[in-house]
Design a protein around this nucleic acid. Structure first.
Lengths: 226, 226
DNA sequence: CGTTTCTCTTTTGTATACGATATGTATACT
DNA sequence: AGTATACATATCGTATACAAAAGAGAAACG
């Protein structure tokens, strides 16, 4: 396993919660596991810290970045705005090749929902939104957007209940939104794109109601982007 | 000079354009200069890459992150929105100690303008907005905001003309805006804060007109945040 | 019995040596 | 003369050894 592969593997393990938030990442143990020396492994951990996957404290090593209650609040405060901005730019800049990749991903997402495979659902949903970030192609939005995607994946899994019929209804709705988003992106309709994203986030509204104190800011931002 | 000091020194040299965009950063040369070995220096460069100060290409080393024409366009497209969102949150969350620090910085900024010291102006303006980012205290907005601040400093210096009376007028206006922002932050008036930031960015509008193709998106976002 | 301090162990941080890869240059060939 | 290829050199990447710091546990003290 080479360096980029190890980098990706750690990302995957963090996104899938195989490595839970807060988990200590011992350099010696990891370097032994991946059969490389500590030097390149440390550089991988530094890179992951820069991307927001892990947190490093001087002389106290790395750990998987945490997900406190505060994080959850900030997440729902920020995500709709950034996603809307990214969606707007993506509608302006989407290239045919990127749209094709997105359609492929969407089909895999659809298959995952049909099969009830929650791990695959999270993965392909993640990929769908990551592709949208690439379409937006804005180096200033990307770092925040990518960080939101990390916790998007982790939060989804945390609150996912496979048996709940309400959950399945929401998955279907998300799937339909994705289809419409592809249309909007293909036709360059940025206003429709923003509206769809706001609607998309309404799906998470009850999560927000459960876990986050009501905050007028969220309404303001969503209204502002509508 | 210890590791964090070297880290800060490199940031300073990049922000002040002492190290110009695109400059190659030779590991051996830098480690010799700072009297440390290549291992910790490489980790510093990796960290700087994560923060957006440098770009690293595999087997081709690190270089100061570039500032292409595209970057400039994206910058003016994105900055008003992110700054407004940060300002809004800062008005909600500003703590007295942070406001005190901001007032101190503002006085240094004022002194720099009075003295016509452009390096100090850029530095204290940078610090003012960095403090605003800390007030906002949102881990998802911070990475994008910090990247914007990097290029904010570099672009300011690139287009600064000390002799131009128009430039001096704009500095005075920026100073006045900062004063008003401190008021708005202290009283928790987030709407006024957003309005001030939009106004603040109008100052850069002629730069935008010179160097960036007109794009309705900017108006939309500014209107949306107003 | 609780607290403190010293020592030992574990883990992170740094230096140096070596190996791998990319680039520039010279030479041979078409 | 132009291009291609092989070699030389410089630079990046990795491994290992050692130093420094933090944490755990035992012993001494109040």
């Amino acid at each position: 396993m080479d360096k980029p592969a190890i980098h990706d593997d750690l990302k995957r393990r963090i996104l899938t919660l195989e490595l839970e938030p807060g988990t200590a990442l011992d350099e010696a143990r990891l370097s032994a596991h991946y059969r490389i020396s500590r030097t390149p492994l440390r550089e991988i951990l530094r890179a992951l810290a820069g991307e927001g996957y892990v947190e490093i404290v001087s002389h106290r090593g790395a750990s998987v970045s945490s997900m406190s209650h505060r994080v959850l609040r900030d997440f729902f405060q920020t995500a709709p705005m950034i996603y809307a901005a990214v969606g707007r730019l993506a509608a302006h800049n989407a290239k045919p090749a990127q749209l094709d990749a997105m359609r492929e991903t969407q089909e895999k997402f659809r298959a995952a929902i049909d099969a009830g495979d929650s791990a695959a659902m999270v993965y392909h949903n993640q990929r769908f939104h990551a592709l949208m970030g690439e379409m937006a192609d804005n180096p200033y939005l990307k770092p925040s957007y990518d960080r939101l995607l990390i916790d998007h994946a982790r939060i989804s899994q945390t609150f996912y209940r496979p048996r709940d019929p309400e959950m399945q209804r929401r998955n279907r709705a998300a799937l339909a939104h994705h289809d419409e988003m592809i249309d909007a992106l293909a036709s360059g309709d940025s206003e429709r794109m923003v509206a769809l994203i706001v609607e998309h986030w309404e799906l998470s509204r009850d999560l927000l109601d459960y876990f986050v104190k009501p905050d007028p800011l969220v309404d303001e931002i969503q209204a502002a982007n509508a």
